[in-house]
Amino acid sequence: MTLTAGLTEAVEVVTDDHGCPVHLWWQNRGYDVVAEPVRWFARRRWWIEEARAERGRAGLVAQEIWRIQIQDPQTASRSTVDVGRSLPADRWRLLRIHEVPAEPEEVE
């Protein structure tokens, strides 16, 4: 089960040199990213969401999304969340919290 998209909120994400999240600040608490994150790029319906689409505008068509497992350093409790990165402002938002950690697909 996931939260609905309407409940997204701003978070701060610290990334490594490859742009991979290593640390997350959410509601004034810091979390470490544990386990290998999964990333993808999700389409945006930009012709509905945006007012302009001039040449060279970044981040119009897709949003980078990371599914990460985060751990509260104090309680050691873990949860799986999806965070999205928005260009060109380079801001992060928390998109979903998964109650059951999603397993990556088994390839036969």
Binding site: V38, R39, W40, F41, A42, I65, R67, A102, P104, E105, V107
Partner: peptide, 13 residues
């Protein structure tokens, strides 16, 4: 892979 959402066409899977 165009890094499409997990499981979809052109995803890493």
């Amino acid at each position: 892979t165009h890094l499409a959402p997990p499981g979809e066409r052109l995803s890493t899977a």
